[in-house]
């Protein structure tokens, strides 16, 4: 039982962060507005969760210009993908155990 819990990753506890990772697992990159619309969250809320994930090295930020407009897109790092997979497995195991 202790093993099961230890794989549950605190970084992914919030719904917004779960959502961000879900999107970035199946899409190579996704931009800020796209994430905002898909997850239905406010700018500030999304930005703070993105910042936290970035600081933990789970996602990386790509800033570029499309024409003259700045465009920020996000992608999951290899480590982030591995950690999220582990987290999902732990969630599934937790359900199976009950």
């Amino acid at each position: 039982m202790k093993d099961l819990i230890s794989n549950i990753n605190k970084v992914f506890e919030s719904r917004v962060r779960l959502g961000i990772m879900s999107v970035l697992m199946v899409n190579e990159t996704y931009d800020f507005n796209g994430l905002k619309e898909t997850l239905n969250v406010t700018d500030g809320n999304l930005a703070s969760h993105l910042k936290a994930l970035e600081e933990k090295g789970i996602i990386k930020v790509n800033k570029q210009f499309i024409g003259r407009k700045p465009n920020t897109s996000y992608s999951a790092t290899e480590a982030g993908i591995a950690e999220f997979r582990q987290h999902l497995k732990a969630l599934e195991n937790l359900i199976k155990e009950q």
Binding site: G19, V26, L91, L94
Partner: peptide, 22 residues
């Protein structure tokens, strides 16, 4: 158990977002 239903809901939400975003 409470954490159990939460996990199930989490996984459901994850599946839905994966599908809708891709």
């Amino acid at each position: 158990m409470k954490s159990d239903t939460k996990s199930i809901e989490d996984i459901k939400a994850i599946r839905k977002i994966m599908e809708e975003s891709s």
